[in-house]
Every structure is written in structure tokens, then in C-alpha cells.
Design a protein around this nucleic acid. Structure first.
Length: 658
RNA sequence: GCGCCCGUAGCUCAGUUGGAUAGAGCGUCGGACUUCGAAUCCGAAAGUCGCAGGUUCAAGUCCUGCCGGGCGUACCA
């Protein structure tokens, strides 16, 4: 029996089989139980409570537990079964667990736990993420999106799906025209080459500049009689009355003037602003294909794309296909026309085409074609989805987008379900919380952002300083001992610093549950100590140094019965237990897109092994008993494989030395 | 107003779908380096799980109502 057990995932079903057999013999149904893990390893490896049987058996749960425990026989897998109050606890033969878990980790190496999804359940699965605007460089919020999207992609691929990661770049619209206009007026022909500024940052500067000029213009306008007239009219509206009342009741509330100046800004942009009008003119010219505007757009876009490519490459993010809204924005029209004929959509008297949200249990109507015939974001998403469906034969589609757009996707998926009933439930919004600063939301227009490139620079620099500091220490130690000291090359220092700095960022970001709204405090920054990416890297590197020290490697062929039996101390078995748990963590993460399950389990494996490593009773290299050394090296290798596998799912590279 | 998400240790966060004694990191306090790498390890203090009801043998977890915070509620994206 034990010979046939090869995978960690076989153990639980095997135990369940035995439990079922016994319960059925007692006239009890196993449906109502789920196997869990006892709080203390000494209690057993797998357990379940007997409360649900109390009614049918008409006995107290502890009595039932006793009886069940007594009737499950020991065999090649189960060493003994005990009861602890109302719980039945099953103990698995230690040698079996060691050989299965360590054996699997050694055999599967850096793919430890891969391919868990059954062949028939594997899907063609598209994941859209990143979706940046071309008017500004990326910030920490985009980093979260990019890391979440790419890690989810890796997880899906790892468990067995066919994954197609795609990007959809928002390269058209009024916001793009703002930076173009600012460049046209104030740019003096500056380029990334002439200025040495990364393209996306350069364009972002003009976006901010536009906002600055516009705010100045608006401030001037607010002093004019026209503004006063608008303000007086606004005061008679519901919003105006409410604002006045609110300030009168509580002077700490903003004055009516302040509320007005904030709320009217967009209207001013549309109705009065010279800059606003120029930006809109530019958008119209772009849509009409005006050669000069299109040329400017092309040039600035190329700057931004080059910048994005650099950021993506550094983050380790990639896409199989990049879509551009300038191409896809027209895609929805045909879909709308067809659906109109089928009666899914309706045309209003003024010409607008809408979808009645009552069809999906919501109120109101969603416009899909404006009365002037132009499309909205929703139309484009519909069209793009249909095109993808035809081209790739998608079975699943995931959109990685911040939770502020949850409603949009509820409606989108509702409409898709009406258009393609067979695709109901196939689409999924991987919604995640925004990244805030202690002062609140990050705003590119106001310059209150943690820039992605800056953050990576900062973390790599901190890592570099740490490496140099350690270099000094080990040099001094070597000199004191009269040993030879070989300094690291600058290139090697830079390489390690980059990997460590990025590991810190990635681990930090992916360690949050997606739904959590993250408050990032730049002053406290991202740590290298404790539960962090660098800790996991350190743990991995230290295992590698064990093999260098031992002057040999081990592999799964060394894991014979007698060697496995040498791994039997509580600390060793604790490590084995964490290796077992790695599979559940990865599968759960793949199924729920919760990367924090992976960060957590990688840490637990590294941490548990570190405890063993630091324990004087667990000398590994140079142990008096060579068989013990072999056994522990096997365990260390299994740990390294698990850590490397887990980190790779997070997009984190490992280092052999750090 | 309505909808979605969130209130867990001083701080930042976990808590696998209702199960055994609510966990981790940081911070605080106290220990461990004449090299298997101290970016480490060991130990301690620290929680009325926002509040109040309810369902259940069993609730941080499910239901209801409050309080407090975030985000939505466009012919924007």
C-alpha cells in the first residue's frame, strides 16, 4: 500500500476512504464531515468532529468518537486512530509521510505541486490586467495590479490551465489630449532623448502641467462676473442649498464657495475653459484622422510604450497580446446592432441604445450607444470580449481591475450573459483594493504618488547598501582570520540588489489578500526583516550554502526507507508538515487568486526550516552520522525546491548566494 | 437614499468556506554568534474579534439592526 502512495494529495482521500467505510458500517453518513487538521501535531495528522452524528446515533459525541476511533484499523497508511473528546484523530505512519512529501518535493523540483487540476477541468483562460493610461507613468497602484495579474497568471498555468495574459492600453480619449496639448504649447520640442527623461515620465509631466495650467485658468475665471452668476444659480440648486446648509450648521464643513469651486470644475472644463475647448478640439481632430494630431499622438505614445516596456521588463511582467483602445473602441458597434435586432437592447426616442438593467435584476438603463451614435466604455468591453471569444475560443475570462469598478463588471457580465447564455459564469472580475497613502488616495494629477520606477530604484538601492555593509563585515572577519577574501564585482552586487529589492516589493504587495485596501506609508517603506521576500531569499541561499559546505548534493534516489526513517524529530516533522501544506496553499491560491496564501506558506516553510537549522541538536553538515547528514540534506533540498517553486509563482527570482 | 467592500494585539495584516486553546510580522522587553551565513533563532508582555440581538451542539466566520471607514451609484473611464 505504502509503495503505491506517491503524491501528497493521495493521503487525504485514502484516509477519507477508511473513515467512510467505518462510518457506513456504523450506520452513519460521512457526508456531514470534513477532514481537518488537529491543533496540536501530537494529537494526530488528520481529524474530524463527531457532533453531526449525535442525533442519528443518539449518543454523546465523545462516545461516538471513541467508537469510531476503535473501529478504524491500523494499516500501511494509518498508524493509529485516537479520540480526543468529540474528535477522531488519525495518525499517519511517519515514514510514509516523509517519503511521500519529501519525495514529491525532490522529484518535482521547481514545479513542486504543479498540475493539480484534472485534465477535463483545464480551461482556456484569458487574463486581462495592467490596462494603463498612456498619459502618466505607473505608480504603486499599477504595481499591485501588475503583480496580482502576473502572479495569478502563473498560478493558473501552474495548476494546469491554458492561460493567455493580455493587456489593454488606454491610448485614446480626452485625458491623452491633455498631455498632448500641454506638450504642443509648452514642450519646446523636448524629447526623452534630448532630456534624458524616461518617455512615460516625460509625458506624465505634461499631463500634470496641463492640470496646473487649467487650475490656474479656472482660479482666474472664478473671479469673473460669469462665475459669480453661475455660483448664484448653483446656490438655488439642491446641491447648492445642501452645501450652504451644511456649512451654516457646522462651520468646520467647507463653505458653499469651496464646494462650488470643486464641483463646478468639470462643467467649467466643458463649457468655458479655453484649454478645455482646445483639448476637445484635439480629440475631434484625432478622431477625424488629422495628420498633425495623429503624428503627435503616435510620437508621444511611442515614448510612453517604451517607458512601459522598461517598467514591465523590470517587474517581470509579460503579455501574450497587447490590445489598444485606439483599435478596439469601434468593436462594440456591431455587437450592439445585432443585439438590438434580437431585442436584447432597445433604442430610445432620442436615438440612444440602452440595455434595461431590470433584465439582470438591477434598476435603471445602461447606455451603450450615445444619442450621437458614439460608444462608451461598456460598448468597447462588449465588443472586445466577443472578438476574443471568436479568436481564442475562451472558456474563462478574468479582468484584474481595482474594486472601484465592481459595478461596471457586474453590468458587463450581466449583459454578456444575456448575449451569450452559454458564457454565464465564465467571466470573473479579480477585484482588489486600492493602494492609498496615509494622506489618502494617490493622484497622478496632483503628483501625490509612489512612482513605480522610483520605488524599484529605492528598494534596490537599500538592498545594495545592505550587501556592501555585509561585504565590509565579512572582509574584516576574513582579515582577522588571515583568510582569503574575494570581493564581489560591482555587476554582481547590482544583480543581487535588483533581485532582493524586487523580492521585497513583490512579497510585500502579494502578501495582502486582494480585497484588502492597502495603506502604504512611504516613510516606513518596505522591510527586509521578518516575514518578507528577502527573508525567503536568505533562507533559500542558506540552504544552497549547505550543499557547498557538504561538498555534495543529494537526490530522490538517496531517499530510501532507512534514510527516511531518520527524519523523525518534532522539528523535522514540522518541516514535512509545512511541505505537505504547500500543495493546499498553491491550489487554493490558484482557485481563488489569493496570492497571500503562497507568500504565507513559503514563509512558513522557510521559517520552520530556519528553526531546525538554528537548533544545536540538528546539525546538518558534518554530522557525526553520515546517514543523518544525508537525510537532513534531503529535507533541506525539499525545502529549497518548495521555496523556489513558491517564489517563482510570485514572480520572485532566487539567489544561490546573497 | 441605494449597492458593494472593510472594522481582529500599540501598528500593518492573516484567520481555507461554522469546529479543538484567535495567529504572524513590525514595535516593546529579555536572551542566543571563536563561522552548517545573525537579512537569523529562542522567550515574554499584548485582543470584550466595532456594538447589540438572533440561528446552531458549536460563531471572528452565517442572519438582522445600529455605529464607524472606503468605493461606487454617468449618454466618464
Amino acid at each position: 500500500m505504502a509503495e503505491q502512495l506517491w503524491l501528497i494529495s493521495d493521503i487525504r482521500p485514502q484516509v477519507m476512504l477508511r473513515v467512510q467505510r467505518t462510518l457506513e458500517a456504523m450506520g452513519l453518513s460521512a457526508d456531514s464531515i470534513t477532514l481537518g487538521v488537529p491543533p496540536d501535531p501530537a494529537m494526530g495528522d488528520i481529524g474530524f468532529p463527531c457532533f453531526p452524528f449525535a442525533k442519528t446515533a443518539r449518543k454523546a459525541p465523545p462516545l461516538i468518537a471513541q467508537e469510531v476511533a476503535a473501529r478504524i484499523p491500523a494499516d500501511e497508511l494509518v498508524s493509529k486512530v485516537t479520540s480526543d473528546g468529540p474528535y477522531v484523530n488519525i495518525h499517519i505512519h511517519v515514514a510514509v509521510r516523509v517519503r511521500v512529501a519529501v519525495g514529491q518535493a525532490l522529484r518535482q523540483s521547481n514545479r513542486f505541486g504543479a498540475g493539480s487540476v484534472a485534465l477535463r477541468d483545464r480551461k482556456t483562460w484569458m487574463v486581462e490586467y495592467s490596462a494603463p493610461n498612456t498619459n502618466k507613468p505607473q505608480h504603486l497602484g499599477h504595481i499591485r495590479n501588475n503583480l496580482l495579474g502576473s502572479s495569478f497568471t502563473r498560478l493558473l498555468d501552474f495548476v494546469g490551465h491554458k492561460v493567455i495574459p493580455v493587456n489593454l492600453i488606454n491610448d485614446r480619449g480626452i485625458h491623452i489630449c491633455k498631455s498632448m496639448l500641454a506638450y504642443q504649447r509648452f514642450g519646446n520640442g523636448i524629447t526623452p532623448q534630448s532630456s534624458g527623461i524616461k518617455g512615460d515620465h516625460l509625458v506624465g509631466e505634461f499631463y500634470v502641467l496641463f492640470e496646473k495650467k487649467f487650475s490656474e485658468e479656472y482660479a482666474e475665471w472664478l473671479k469673473t462676473p460669469a462665475a459669480t452668476a453661475e455660483f448664484d444659480r448653483w446656490l438655488t440648486t439642491r446641491a447648492g442649498i445642501a452645501a450652504a446648509k451644511s456649512h451654516a450648521a457646522n462651520p468646520a464643513e467647507p463653505t458653499a464657495e469651496q464646494v462650488f469651486s470643486k464641483e463646478y470644475k468639470q462643467d467649467y472644463f466643458n463649457d468655458y475653459s479655453e484649454l478645455g475647448m482646445a483639448a476637445r478640439d484635439m480629440l475631434r481632430a484625432w478622431e477625424a484622422g488629422d495628420a498633425e494630431v495623429v503624428a503627435l499622438w503616435r510620437m508621444m505614445n511611442q515614448w510612453v510604450f517604451a517607458g512601459f516596456d522598461a517598467t514591465y521588463a523590470r517587474l517581470g511582467v509579460r503579455f501574450d497580446r497587447v490590445y489598444y483602445e485606439s483599435d478596439t473602441w469601434v468593436l462594440g458597434k456591431k455587437v450592439v446592432e445585432d443585439a438590438l435586432k434580437e431585442g436584447v437592447f432597445e433604442r430610445l426616442d432620442d436615438g440612444a441604445v440602452v440595455f434595461d438593467l431590470q433584465r439582470i435584476g438591477k434598476t435603471g438603463k445602461k447606455v451603450l450607444l450615445r444619442r450621437d451614435g458614439t460608444t462608451v466604455y461598456m460598448t468597447q468591453d462588449l465588443g472586445t470580449f466577443m472578438a476574443r471569444l471568436d479568436e481564442y475560443g475562451l472558456e474563462r475570462m478574468t479582468y484584474v481591475v481595482a474594486d472601484e469598478q465592481a459595478y461596471h463588471f457586474e453590468v458587463l457580465f450581466g449583459i454578456l450573459g444575456e448575449l451569450r447564455p452559454e458564457m454565464k459564469g465564465a467571466c470573473h472580475h479579480l477585484s482588489y483594493g486600492m493602494v492609498h497613502l496615509p494622506e489618502g488616495k494617490m493622484k497622478s494629477r496632483e503628483g501625490t504618488v509612489v512612482d513605480a520606477d522610483d520605488l524599484m530604484d529605492t528598494m534596490a538601492e537599500l538592498a545594495r547598501e545592505e550587501i556592501v555593509r555585509r561585504e565590509d563585515e565579512s572582509r574584516q572577519r576574513a582579515e582577522a582570520h588571515g583568510d582569503l577574501f574575494e570581493p564581489l564585482s560591482q555587476a554582481e552586487i547590482a544583480r543581487r540588489a535588483e533581485i532582493i529589492g524586487l523580492a521585497a516589493i513583490k512579497y510585500y504587495v502579494l502578501n495582502f489578500t486582494p480585497q484588502t485596501t492597502v495603506t502604504f506609508d512611504p516613510k516606513r517603506s518596505i522591510d527586509f526583516l521578518g516575514q518578507t521576500g528577502p527573508y525567503c531569499l536568505y533562507s533559500y541561499a542558506r540552504v544552497q550554502s549547505l550543499f557547498r559546505k557538504a561538498g555534495r548534493t543529494v537526490d530522490v534516489n538517496d531517499l530510501d526507507e532507512t534514510t527516511a526513517a531518520l527524519l523523525s524529530s518534532p522539528l523535522e516533522l514540522a518541516v514535512v508538515r509545512e511541505l505537505e501544506a504547500f500543495l493546499d496553499a498553491v491550489n487554493y491560491a490558484g482557485a481563488t487568486a489569493d496570492t497571500s496564501k503562497v507568500t504565507e506558506q513559503v514563509y512558513r516553510i522557510a521559517k520552520t526550516f530556519s528553526t531546525l537549522y538554528n537548533d544545536k541538536e540538528h546539525q546538518i553538515v558534518g554530522n557525526a552520522d553520515r546517514h543523518v547528514e544525508t537525510a537532513r540534506l534531503l529535507l533541506a533540498k525539499a525545502v529549497a525546491n518548495a521555496v523556489k517553486t513558491g517564489l517563482s509563482l510570485l514572480g520572485i527570482e532566487t539567489l544561490e548566494q546573497m
